[in-house]
Design a protein around this nucleic acid. Structure first.
Length: 429
RNA sequence: GGAGGGAUCGCAUAGUGGACUAGUGCGCACGCUUGGAAAGCGUGUAUGACCGCAAGGUUAUCGGGGGUUCGAAUCCCCCUCUCUCCGCCA
């Protein structure tokens, strides 16, 4: 069984001890992620806070002793002394609170530190290709892109979606739906065998939950849909509602690793991507995704990331789609991640590799912000958390349509999906 | 949306202003007892922060936040979640 933590009024956003002991390391790491923080300033506030805290404890000690010394009705002199003590405490409390808030504010802006093996780099142009699976698909005709194929097959309809919802939306129809369901079933079947717990999570979450995940910082909230009247945010990935499931909980070490597979819509504003990838369903405001999330013991995250990555590769190898594996450099990691790999599938319609999965370890970064621990003997430690894509819908189907297309515009169904789809070919009606 | 109840230690409960240093039962751990076990008996049983080499000490926490008071689990206000009923609803 798990235990519910009752109080969490002081969430430690970032390990202050790490900053005290290795200020340069933290400063450098943030810089390598291209995020500006001022470690010196943080240490100053930390010092002020601790000094006030010590004084405050002394005052409280005095006041507690005094209150306890009164039996029965207090004399007017005692009342007066008590009032004076109280004022001292309240004044110091206010100071402490101010410093605490300031400290929290600074700490919340420190990103997770990249792992040592992650290359320091500016942006995506400095990411490394780790390995490749197969060569780009060859055609003895000119391959079409997924939108041309999808429209002709009657499975993707963006024209009508534009009428109803606007740009970057799509109707998926007919065999397109069956193809998505086939991918879902394929992924779930395999992941259930691996012990993953299937989840259909909420897609509206509270703002404070998103803050706990570390996605609101550094402009991250620009890509989220906010429901301002109701103070909800639409998730950009199931990870965002799967990870905080264990907020304020203490898991048992025996129950680790705890693995979940979620299937949910994902919503993205795609702010700042105007004019980019406007054709087709590569970049849309809403798509479904099968997502993996792991909770593991401290220090187990490297092994778990390899495991999740191996599953992702297995999926795309099973689909027999050419891909390359990318390891992100520090500048392309994002706020919470310590290490990240992307699989980029070959997309003949664009003659390019494009991202289809992403697997990150966030180490204990989100656990600290969300107060998620596990009991290890007499010790309580922060969980390590990982997330990885199984199948992002829109993009995996794109890769299938484009790589499996035939000259007549039909699309062969990948071998492993045939039993779920009940057919081996998608053709125009 | 409306009306009313509730949230206390891992679980169950007691607790209407100072004896609460939060009691009791269960559970758990250790010990005694036993050929071994059960029962019985005894002892212990939170977390965070801060100070300290340590032993230890201080402080905060009874869903969360604020207030009243010399003093709050207890009184007042706000919020969250939950239960019962009414309304609406796939």
């Amino acid at each position: 069984m798990l235990k519910q933590v009752q109080h969490d009024n002081f969430i430690i956003m970032f390990d202050i001890k790490l900053i005290r002991e290795n200020p340069e390391k933290v400063q450098e790491a943030a810089k390598s992620k291209r995020i500006a923080i001022d470690v010196k300033k943080i240490l100053e506030v930390d010092k002020k806070y601790r000094d006030v805290e010590i004084v405050l404890q002394k005052f409280r000690e005095k006041m507690n002793a005094f209150s306890k010394s009164i039996k029965g009705k207090p004399t007017p002199e005692q009342l007066q002394e008590g009032k004076e003590l109280k004022e001292e405490v309240q004044k110091t409390e206010n100071d402490a609170k101010l410093f605490k808030h300031e400290l929290d504010m600074w700490l919340s802006q420190i990103p997770n530190l990249p792992k040592d093996d992650v290359k320091v780099g500016r942006d995506e142009s400095e990411n490394d290709v780790i390995r490749k699976f197969k060569e780009p698909t060859k055609f003895d005709f000119t391959p079409k892109d997924h939108l041309a194929l999808g429209e002709a097959l009657g499975i993707i309809d963006m024209t009508r979606a534009a009428k109803v919802s606007g740009a970057r939306f799509a109707y998926l129809k007919g065999d397109g739906v069956l193809l998505e369901f086939a991918l879902v079933q394929f992924a779930f079947e395999m992941l259930l065998k691996e012990g993953f717990i299937p989840v259909l999570p909420p897609v509206l979450i509270k703002k404070e939950t998103m803050q706990g995940l570390g996605y609101m910082e550094n402009g991250g909230d620009e890509d989220m849909f906010h429901l301002k009247d109701d103070d909800f945010i639409l998730v950009g990935t199931a990870e965002q509602s799967l990870v905080p499931m264990h907020k304020d909980e203490i898991l048992r070490k025996e129950d680790l690793p705890r693995r979940y597979v979620g299937y949910s819509p994902s919503f993205r504003r795609e702010a700042g991507s105007y004019g980019k990838d406007t054709r087709g369903i590569l970049r849309v405001h809403q798509f479904n995704k099968v997502e993996m999330v792991s909770f593991v013991a401290a220090g187990e995250d490297d092994r778990e990331q390899d495991f999740l990555l191996s599953l992702e590769e297995k999926f795309f190898q099973a689909l027999d789609i050419p891909y390359q594996l990318i390891k992100m450099c520090t500048g392309d990691l994002g706020f919470p991640a310590a290490r990240k790999y992307d699989i980029e599938a070959w997309m003949p319609g664009q003659n390019k590799y494009r991202e289809v999965t992403s697997v990150s370890t966030v180490t204990d970064f989100q656990s600290r912000r969300l107060n998620m621990k596990y009991q290890d003997g007499t010790e309580r430690k922060y969980l390590n958390v990982l997330n990885g894509t199984a199948f992002a819908m829109s993009r995996t189907p794109i890769a299938i349509l484009e790589n499996y297309q035939q000259e007549d515009g039909s699309v062969i169904v990948p071998e492993v999906l045939r039993k779920y789809m009940g057919k081996d070919k998608i053709s125009a009606k």
